[in-house]
């Protein structure tokens, strides 16, 4: 599903590479925590998977696409099979929850009929059917992240990338978001989640990939945030 092979990314002017000979295989249906200090290369790795950036050397295959050779015009189509959520939600402030979700379908040319059906469905899935017509400013942080999640999964992506999705949320709200991610994962979506949240990773008992200084220093299944026991 995601196959990363000997990937190195050297940014211009940086003393050491952001990613250094990273190799990683992620299978269909997996839930992977990506952990590590700030600057360890988590975000760089996510950017590579999204094809927002290309590695200096090495190869990346995602969903059968070779991301090194993919022509620019096919990148948008590739991204439609991926969902993404961020720490800062990235909702459009002048659109309601439902409009935010609908926007992501409108811009990929889905029909009005499809949107009218899919949006309420996905809002129900994330538990926000009551708040469909609220603006982001009228929603709590947890609710905003649910809208962002709804937007990320409304097009039924095969992979969901979550970059510190609980970074701005309190532990209770985070637990709610994690429960939701688990449900999405159980429905068959592969999830890669970068996080700093020790509690969440320890509780999750899932595959943990730890990055340090651009290198993978640990890759264990059913593990916690810290050094394995």
């Amino acid at each position: 599903m995601i196959s990363i092979n000997q990937v190195t990314k050297q940014y211009k002017g940086a003393p050491r590479p952001a990613l250094d000979q990273v190799s990683l295989e992620i299978d269909k249906g997996e839930f992977v925590f990506l952990v590590g200090a700030s600057g360890s290369g988590k975000s760089s790795l996510m950017r590579m998977i999204l094809r927002e950036d290309v590695p200096t050397s090495g190869s990346i295959h995602v969903l059968g696409e070779n991301l090194i050779g993919i022509p620019n015009r096919r990148v948008p189509h590739f991204r439609r099979s991926l969902g993404v959520v961020f720490q800062d939600f990235r909702l459009l402030p002048n659109k309601t929850a439902a409009q935010n979700v609908a926007f992501s379908l409108e811009v990929i040319g889905k029909s009005a009929g499809f949107i009218a059906e899919a949006v309420p469905d996905v809002l129900r899935l994330v538990g926000l059917e009551e708040k469909a017509s609220s603006l982001p400013s009228e929603l709590s942080g947890g609710e905003q992240q649910r809208v962002a999640l709804a937007r990320a999964i409304v097009n039924k992506p095969a992979i969901l990338l979550a970059d510190e999705p609980t970074g701005n949320l309190d532990p209770n709200t985070s637990a709610g978001i994690m429960a939701l991610l688990d449900r999405i994962n159980l429905a068959g979506t592969t999830i890669v989640m970068a996080t700093h949240d020790v509690g969440i990773v320890d509780k999750g008992r899932k595959r943990v990939v730890e990055l340090s200084q651009g290198k993978i220093v640990r890759d264990e299944r059913g593990s916690g945030y810290g050094v394995s026991k």
Partner: peptide, 17 residues
Amino acid sequence: RREIGIMRLVGASNFYI
């Protein structure tokens, strides 16, 4: 740029953007 950022993330075609 917010709208454009989201359009790119969800895979809107360049033409559409």
